[in-house]
Design a protein around this nucleic acid. Structure first.
Length: 282
DNA sequence: AGTACAGCCTGCCTGC
DNA sequence: TGCAGGCAGGCTGTAC
């Protein structure tokens, strides 16, 4: 389940290689029922034809979306869902499994979108004909960006009665945070994931903001998390290493590295939340 | 209006 | 050994 640091790593890796390249073709394996285009309101042939011949002018990340800016103006957007990988391969290299789409570049290299669990999606933005089925502008601020100030976070946290974990994972509130990094940030800030948001003190909110920034930055530096049951790989097929630094996520039953108490997990907001009951009081 | 939750999907793991 | 069932989760639509 690639979250912000994983998508950021892929973006950084791809940026130099693909910027300036012409998309020579987009290929969809014929045996797959094109779930990857499930919200595109036309056929996969039309999707391919719309993008063919466009130049990639840059690669960006917004929340967990990977955005390829195109010329003629438009965007090819990828969301990796929970098991998606983007593999940068030579056109002659051995096939990869679970490939749902292939973006061929300049007739020499290709981006293979591999996704066993098929939660991933491809989008095309080229108005007025092709618009997005979701609101890119409605996303909350990037947690590492200048808009995610202590004042902003305090305001949104203080006015909600939802659990703080569910709030952190809401992309309209803060972009790009999933289960791994919400658990880790809450542990670092010593805040129980089930606490109603409005019960957090200003000090706790400040600690949470700083924990988020510290952890996400470190995770990017370690090229993301490839934990057990995480298929995350970078565009070269390599794992990240932040799984070695996780404090609570997938450490249920193991001793807390801070106090020795056993890490526990509980279902909060429909997700498995891992936390230390001693360090993170309810 | 704000919040909670089912459903989508398949590979892997556990238990029988 | 083989199979059934549970689990993982980002996002959306729907229900409360």
């Amino acid at each position: 389940m690639p979250e912000l640091p994983e998508v950021e790593t892929i973006k950084n890796d791809l940026s130099n290689t693909v910027t300036g390249k012409i998309i020579s073709a987009v290929v969809f394996p014929p045996d797959f029922r094109c779930r990857i285009l499930r919200r595109f309101c036309a056929s996969s042939d039309i999707f391919g034809k719309e993008i063919q011949g466009a130049a990639i002018t840059g690669v960006r990340r917004r929340a967990k979306y990977l955005i390829f800016d195109l010329d003629p103006p438009g965007m090819l957007i990828m969301h990796l869902g929970m098991s998606g990988q983007i593999l940068l391969r030579g056109m002659d290299s051995a096939p990869d499994s679970h490939v749902r789409a292939i973006v061929q570049l300049a007739g020499e290299i290709e981006l293979r979108f591999s996704d066993p669990r098929t939660f991933g999606e491809l989008f095309l933005y080229r108005p007025p004909r092709w618009t997005l089925p979701f609101d890119l502008d409605g996303l909350g601020p990037e947690p590492l960006g200048p808009e995610c100030t202590a004042a902003y976070l305090t305001a949104v946290v203080k006015k909600s009665r939802r659990s703080i974990k569910s709030l952190l994972m809401d992309k309209r509130i803060v972009a790009g945070i999933g289960n791994i990094y919400s658990d880790e940030a809450l542990f670092a800030a010593a805040v129980h994931p089930g606490r109603p948001s409005c019960s957090l003190t200003r000090q706790e909110i400040a600690a949470l903001r700083s924990a988020l920034r510290r952890i996400l930055t470190a995770a990017i530096r370690h090229r993301g998390t490839s934990a057990r049951d995480q298929r995350y790989r970078d565009s070269g097929g390599r794992t990240g290493s932040f799984q070695n630094r996780l404090q609570v996520y997938q450490r249920c039953g193991q001793p807390c590295r801070r106090c020795g108490f056993l890490i526990t997990s509980r279902r909060i907001a429909g997700r498995t939340a891992s936390f230390c009951p001693a360090c993170q009081h309810e």
